[in-house]
Design a protein around this nucleic acid. Structure first.
Lengths: 217, 217
DNA sequence: AGCTTTACTGACCAAAAGGTCAATTACTAA
DNA sequence: TTAGTAATTGACCTTTTGGTCAGTAAAGCT
């Protein structure tokens, strides 16, 4: 028999319920913001008594923090293991592409982060300091090395990163505006390619690179 | 004597008070969002009885709408009177520059719009449909004409506009993140030029243009 | 001056917010 | 089986919310 380490019904149901609650909370917080979503709404959405949520998460703040923590845990900043020897065009193209795919297909998390940052990032400050900042520092170094080796134009690498983030996340965070301006109801299958192409063209060419030959993924 | 058309004390004080209230509301809504800011906070900030706000603006919704209306009234979408005969590089460079200046110096309004769009733009839908959409259409036509005349690269003009909007607004809406990542407390005098330079370099070169010689404003 | 009308606001209200708690219902381990 | 512990939740609490309203003050008009 497979050595089960205590099936432990309690833990199982707790984790099941917590997931239910976190899913509902994630959706509501990203849709309505921290203040816009209420505990009773989350309770109703998760089909769980409100007191149960408080029992698991102590407070609304606690719930919100757990939602953010869970997102961060599954968060991939991308651009892993990039080194000076990699080809800038390929690396950046793939980064842009993956960010566009994320923005179009999973806008909720991006929007939750956006509304958090809009409010001054009270819960994300620590994350930015301990995770994003070192991550950025490292990428900036690689970008700088590429520039020093004349592989690409010399521009402020921070602003280059901000440019990539802003252009890609825009399609998640400002989806409502994009769709209204383009007179669409939702993104269609061709949009990801369209958006990736446009952004990659501008940014890559803009820093002196060529869009790499594609390349199925 | 100057022909005064009724100094009318009533109207004067009403307008003065309304301005007080709208200023306070604009600040609080942009800082805390619609749900995060309460009527009593606005009242306290504006140093006016809460009932007075309700008297002027009927409801919280009414106040919020008035705040948005006032912003829109003073809103300049920029790129006015652009024609096919203008020089794309100059026009776009100036547009980017003006948007960066706005983002760095007046981030509040940008953030209010951002949080409004994040929530699905309930109050801005109409504005987008009746104002932004036609505005965009017109600019898109000019951009397209420039492309057809081989004055710049052929890319989707909508996405080009989104790129300009996203990169510039980013410094207002995501100011907290930018500052945390760059380890700064606030933007300094050199930042506007830095940011403008970086964005303009990427975008203009990215669409086959050269940054125009500057040019004091 | 006095009368009318509009502007204002303190006191109040119902609803909803986040949160507590005592009582009940599971589980688990002996 | 059962005692002990942890999980669960309905009822309840306080505070705050957006909003009303009746009474008062202040113009405006003749």
């Amino acid at each position: 028999m497979t050595t089960q380490i205590k099936p432990n019904k309690k833990e199982v149901t707790r984790e099941k319920n917590q997931k239910l609650i976190l899913d509902a909370a994630e959706q509501l917080f990203s849709q309505l913001g921290y203040d816009g979503a209420s505990m009773s709404m989350v309770a109703k959405e998760a089909q769980v008594p409100k007191a149960n949520i408080l029992y698991y998460f102590k407070s609304k703040d606690g719930l919100y923090e757990s939602v953010i923590d869970r997102i961060i845990a599954n968060w991939n900043l991308g651009l892993d293991n990039v080194t000076i020897n990699d080809d800038p065009a390929t690396v950046l193209y793939n980064y842009i592409k993956s960010k566009v795919i994320l923005a179009v297909n999973q806008p909720m998390q991006s929007r939750l982060f956006a509304s958090e940052i809009l409010r001054g990032a009270p819960y994300l400050q620590n994350y930015f300091r301990t995770n994003t900042r070192p991550w950025v520092k490292q990428k900036v170094d690689v970008l700088q090395a590429w520039m020093d080796a004349d592989k690409m134009d010399k521009i402020d690498p921070y602003h280059l990163l901000f440019t990539i983030w802003s252009t890609t996340q825009y399609y998640a965070d400002f989806q409502a505006e994009v769709l209204l301006v383009m007179n669409k109801l939702e993104y269609d299958e061709t949009d990801v390619a369209q958006i990736t192409q446009s952004i990659a063209h501008i940014i890559l060419k803009g820093i002196g690179l060529k869009i790499p030959e594609q390349s199925e993924t």
